[in-house]
Every structure is written in C-alpha cells, then in structure tokens.
Amino acid sequence: MMLEVKNLHVYYGSIHALKGINFHVDKGEVVALIGANGAGKSTTLSTISGLLQPAEGNVIFQGEDITLTPAEQTVQKGVVQVPEGRKIFATLTVMENLEMGAYTQRDKNQFKQDLEYVFTLFPRLKERQKQLGGTFSGGEQQMLAMARALMSSPTMLLLDEPSMGLSPILVEQIFEIVQSINKKGTSILLVEQNAQMALSIADRAYVLETGEIKLEGSAQEVLHNPTVIEAYLGGH
C-alpha cells in the first residue's frame, strides 16, 4: 500500500471537519476523492501533506507514519500537493517557479531530467520560461502548478481540484496529462468536484460528505451508484 489514512479527525477551531475517515491508495493507482463544497476534501489533502495536523488518526506513507511530519519534510518523502487554486508564485518567472518545485532536489542530473520531462508534458512552459507566473491564464497556471510539483520527482501526487474554473477542453487536456503522469508510475490522489471527469480516469473512488466517507468502490461502481448519480452527476 502506498498511502493509508486511518481514522483521521481534523478540527478547525470548534468545527469538526473530518470525522474519522479511512482510505488508501495503492501503488500506481489513481484514486478520486469526490464530494461537494465543504465536504472536507481539501482538508484531507492538507492533512496528508502536513499543512494541517489531525487531532486523531494516522497518515502512513510507504509504511512510514508521516502524520506529524511538517509540510516541508513531506515533500522530501515523495508526497507533493498541488494546492487548490494553483497557488503559483505570481511574481516569479516560470523557470523560477519550476526551480522552487525542485527546491529539495540536490541531484543536478535529476533536475535536468525532470525539467525535460515537464517540458515534454507542457511544451508551452518551455516557450515561456522567462514570463512571470502571474501573467498566465487559469489553464496555464494549472499546468505550471502541476509541472512545479513534478519537479521534485514525487512518488505520489495530491491534486486538489485541477479542473476548477477551466473550460471543458482544458479540463480534458489536464486530465489526459494526469493520466500520462500516472502511467509513468506516480500514484495519484485526485480531489474533484467534477465527479464525472474524475471518475472517468480513476481506478477507485471515495465519496466524502460532511467529513465522512459515505461510499467507496471502483470508479465504475461509484459512477453507476444511484445516490452518486443523483447528487453529483446531475441526475442522469
């Protein structure tokens, strides 16, 4: 098992945001975590990456307990979060953003390889290396954010709402790239409101509702579950 989350409880002040959730991601899998706004999806990712600390429960990555590992050390263990809303460094150039992503990378050759890899995934970034990140459109920013995360050669990628605010064509492009990243061996935990899209590329899925996991199964099972269709897929 790549990643295992056990009985995770997280509070924001007095708000009980996660009420003891359990799930896991196997090696090489794409796992989708779907649910409405405020269900606790981003909270889950931030707790795994170490930005938030749980009141109870454990996060286990490759057999190691990383529950209390701070964010800057989680990266070095191979888990990287692409935060909601891209959060690229607007006043840094594209190249500087990518170098930031490789902050923990000490190996010069690996850096060059990773750079080449993200430039083949996102050719547009190569053309615009010297441009400031803040001048990019939403789709380009999403690509930059993903490229930046890949620069640390992660074993596991946590994607938070990559489709947010993007046109359907761009969403499709982004998800194709997610699939190709996965094919290269990176496990992916994908948080999405766009359930249809997420389920189309996921191996398995969990449905999160007000801090609890309400449903789990293979992507196909979840896709054809009547409650999911009713609540997240527009009732078709």
């Binding site: 990266v75 959060k87 460094f89 840094l92 640390s152």
Partner: peptide, 14 residues
C-alpha cells in the same frame, strides 16, 4: 521571495 508571496505554498515546495 516565495515565502514572501505565499507561506503555505512555499512549505509545500519543501
């Protein structure tokens, strides 16, 4: 400069 812009995201970079 990254920390000045966004502390949380900077920590996500390691």
């Amino acid at each position: 400069r990254a920390v000045a812009q966004d502390r949380a995201t900077a920590s996500l970079m390691g």
